[in-house]
């Protein structure tokens, strides 16, 4: 065989493998989609929506942490800003349809994200984490002091209203499919971003920032855009959450929440697409199960323990470890 023959053979076999992998992925995704569509008939829809909202929150966070390498310790600020804005608008202006309230909440969170990004982007690594944490604390104090948030009591009775003016969201199933649609849309968006040339630059920045700079990329702009997109999606998650639970509370603004989303992403697998979703499922479930049982007072130390074990023993997270295993044994 000539060299070109060998080369084309190799090429073909690679293509074949790729196709097989694509097919496998497609089947997996189809299977997951069917599961998600049928899930509310088996599991309480509000619980599922809680998972979806937190999953979106974690996916948004992961775009910044997992793919760009920036650890924000202030993402709770965006979740809460989205939630409070949407809650306030829907409670006080009955003419607004639900999606308008959610869009408004997302926009305000986006603007806040831009402000955070401009202030913090020149710092790196742990400095970046400290600056975002402090900025989020400022936002927290703002919400504590502002009368419209209801302070420690939170904002209750946010009306779910009607989607586009005619789909009644008081019905849990309607609400679920709406949340699912938004979640899937955002998930696909993030997938698209990560796979795009822009996403490749983000990965390059994560791996070696000086090199990206030397290649001529305006690194700060890329990072700011990633931060803003991440903040927008986190705000969207908060907006939806306040509609689902008809409640926006200070819990969402607390630094504890910023820590929780880090845990979700880390446990699920940072830098993977599905990881944050699995992580959110895991954390929400663990919290729920613990709250039912005799360990209800031990949620915090147990989550802290999960943190420690994850960092020490499996930094790739659940999805990352599975990927490693598959590559080693089946690839």
């Amino acid at each position: 065989m000539s060299q070109t023959d060998i080369r084309s053979q190799i090429h073909k076999s690679i293509l074949k493998q790729q196709k097989a992998e694509d097919r496998r992925k497609l089947m997996l995704n189809g299977f997951l989609l069917v599961l998600l569509l049928l899930a509310p008939f088996v599991i309480y829809p509000v619980f599922l929506m809680k998972i979806l909202c937190f999953a979106l929150f974690a996916v948004a966070f992961n775009l910044l942490f997992g793919f760009t390498g920036l650890l924000s310790f202030g993402h709770a600020a965006f979740l809460a800003t989205g939630g409070y804005t949407t809650g306030y608008l829907l409670s006080n202006y009955s003419g607004l349809t639900t999606e308008m309230g959610i869009i408004a909440g997302t926009l305000v969170a986006t603007v806040l994200g831009l402000a955070f990004a401009l202030l913090s982007i020149r710092r790196q690594g742990i400095y970046f984490a400290m600056v975002t944490l402090a900025l989020a604390q400022l936002v927290f104090f703002f919400f504590v002091q502002s009368p419209f948030t209801g302070g420690e009591d939170g904002m209750h009775g946010v009306p779910r209203g009607e989607l586009l003016g005619f789909i009644n969201l008081e019905d849990n199933l309607n609400m679920y499919y709406f949340v699912l649609a938004v979640f899937l849309g955002c998930y696909l968006l993030v997938q698209r971003i990560v796979g795009s040339p822009y996403g490749q630059v983000l990965k390059a920045i994560k791996q070696n920032e000086p090199r990206a700079v030397s290649l001529g990329y305006k690194v700060d702009r890329y990072k700011i855009l990633a931060f803003v997109i991440s903040a927008a999606l986190a705000g969207l998650a908060g907006s939806m959450k306040s509609v689902v639970f008809q409640l926006a509370s200070l819990n969402d603004a607390h630094w504890h929440m910023s820590g929780e989303v880090i845990l979700m992403t880390l446990v699920g697998g940072m830098g993977t697409l599905l990881g944050p979703v699995i992580g959110a499922m895991f954390v929400v479930n663990v919290e729920y199960q613990l709250a039912q049982g005799p360990l209800r007072d031990w949620v915090d130390p147990i989550l802290g323990g999960v943190f420690v074990i994850t960092v020490l023993a499996f930094r790739s997270g659940i999805v990352g470890e599975i990927q490693k295993f598959v590559r080693k044994n089946l690839g």
Binding site: I126, A129, D300, V308, L312
Partner: peptide, 19 residues
């Protein structure tokens, strides 16, 4: 490892002690 991990580790330890 990346210093971010030690930050997260100490955060976890803080949660445990406080909890």
């Amino acid at each position: 490892q990346d210093h971010i991990y030690s930050l997260l580790l100490t955060f976890g330890v803080a949660l445990i002690m406080q909890g």
